[in-house]
Computed example of a mutant assay.
Amino acid sequence: TGGDLTAGSLGRLAVTRQARGLGVGAALVRAIEEEAARLGLTAVDLHAQTHALGFYERLGYVAYGPEFPDAGIPHRAMRREIGAA
């Protein structure tokens, strides 16, 4: 993102309340990372709602930069380095 052609961008990720805690979100993120690596990318960036930081941190994402609003909801930028296939 921001012009970095080696990084993919994970846009919106949502899991229904009924499916939360079942590993669906983590499986979706991992599938995105696998495809990004297959395409030769070396990182995945995302903008996480601040209440979801822990979820992404458990998946290896690191927050950077200041908190910012997106659609009136506080967010932080995050990145995870991945291995290219």
Rank of each mutant, 00 (worst) to 15 (best):
H75L: 11
R17L: 12
T50P: 01
G83I: 12
I32Y: 02
Y64L: 07
G25M: 02
Q49K: 12
A27M: 06
E34Q: 13
P66T: 15
E81Y: 05
D70P: 00
V62T: 14
E33D: 02
M78N: 06
A52I: 00
R80A: 13
R17Q: 13
Y64S: 04
P74L: 07
S9K: 15
A63S: 10
L13T: 12
A84W: 04
L10W: 00
A52D: 00
A43P: 02
D70G: 01
T42E: 05
A52K: 04
T16L: 10
H75T: 09
G21S: 02
G8D: 06
G83L: 09
A19N: 05
G8H: 02
R38L: 05
G25K: 03
R76Y: 07
H75D: 08
G65I: 12
V29D: 00
T42P: 01
L13Y: 04
A19M: 11
F55G: 12
D70C: 06
R30Y: 00
D70R: 08
D70A: 07
V15M: 01
A48C: 12
A52G: 04
R12A: 15
L28Y: 01
G8V: 08
T42V: 13
A77P: 01
R76D: 00
R76V: 10
Q18I: 05
R20A: 06
G25Q: 03
P66Y: 12
P69E: 15
L28W: 00
Y61P: 15
